[in-house]
Computed example of a mutant assay.
Amino acid sequence: MAGRGSLAAPLFWTSVVGGTAALWLGRPALVATGLAALLVLLRALDRPARFRRLVRRVARRHADTLALRQRQESFVDAYGNLVRDGWLREREYFVVRTVLPEIENRGFSDYAEERFDEMVEIVEAVAASVELPDETEAPDDGVGYEQFCADRLTEAGWRAHTTRASGDQGADIVAERDRVRLVVQCKRYGKPVGNAAVQEVAAAARYWSGDMAAVVTNAGFTPAARKLAAATGVHLLHHDELPDLHPVRQIRGGRAR
């Protein structure tokens, strides 16, 4: 109904203005009115396609991140079932927070509700189109995974080293770059990481006088973990995001080392 209304108004006013002009200018104005009405009609008919192109363009700007989130927020449970609940929430969040403002600014606000599922499907397709690095390259054991993450940080310009197994106070890696200290906890999991890891690395950052804190995993994070991380300034990362992690002072440590 909204689409019909948005078409009826331009056609009506084109006819009114053109008809009035035709009374004064005759046949040329009548022909021009017909052409203008045809352009209005063609533009209206092309509107759904322009809408889909816009949504796809917005999603493609964030394609790599969406693909990582899809991988993080999907896992196989103990019964062999593929659980995608986290990814389903993530893609809807992306549509609401990132796509909707764009389409509303471009005159498609009437599509926000009636074509919401279509937007979600486009986001799903864009995320699936990205070819990510092979997940099997990350070691399965905890110690190996910690070294794997430390190596990635080193390649990105950090001076990174793993901590000893005992007495680390929740820190698996301590790294420094540009006088910024990063404290990391690594989780090689088969399910989303909970908020306990966020609590531990936040405490570890204070112990190690860290400026930044992060939990790195191959899996995703629970909603509770994301909420706590937002409140504490802890980064929640997939290991593929480590090469793009830049030093930023966020957390003030309480103990000098």
Rank of each mutant, 00 (worst) to 15 (best):
N105A: 15
A224F: 04
A44D: 10
R252T: 15
A49K: 01
T136R: 12
D134C: 10
R181H: 12
D77G: 04
D244R: 05
L228F: 04
A44S: 11
P247T: 05
V31L: 15
G26H: 08
R181Q: 10
R181K: 15
R84E: 14
P10D: 02
Y93I: 06
V96P: 05
R27D: 14
M1D: 08
R152K: 14
S109M: 07
V96K: 07
F94E: 00
R91H: 03
L228N: 00
G107I: 06
R53T: 03
E176Q: 14
E90G: 04
E121N: 08
P28F: 13
D151G: 00
V183A: 14
A197R: 05
A230H: 12
R257N: 14
V17G: 00
K227Y: 07
P192Q: 01
R50N: 10
Y79A: 10
L242N: 02
V55K: 03
A225G: 06
V16C: 12
V216G: 01
T98D: 03
A196W: 12
R206N: 05
E114M: 09
R69T: 09
A112Y: 02
L25F: 15
K227N: 09
R257T: 09
T14Y: 01
R57P: 07
G3R: 13
A138R: 13
L132R: 14
K191T: 11
D168I: 09
E121S: 12
D110N: 13
T98G: 03
R257W: 09
H161D: 11
H161K: 12
D172K: 10
A138N: 12
V95R: 01
C186F: 12
V123E: 00
G220I: 07
R159P: 00
V198L: 13
L242D: 00
A22F: 08
D140H: 06
R152F: 03
R69L: 10
W208I: 01
A44Y: 06
V184R: 02
D178F: 10
L25R: 09
R115Y: 10
G86K: 02
V96D: 14
V248R: 11
D244H: 05
V99M: 00
G220M: 00
L82S: 11
R91Y: 04
D77Q: 01
T14H: 04
K187R: 13
L38A: 15
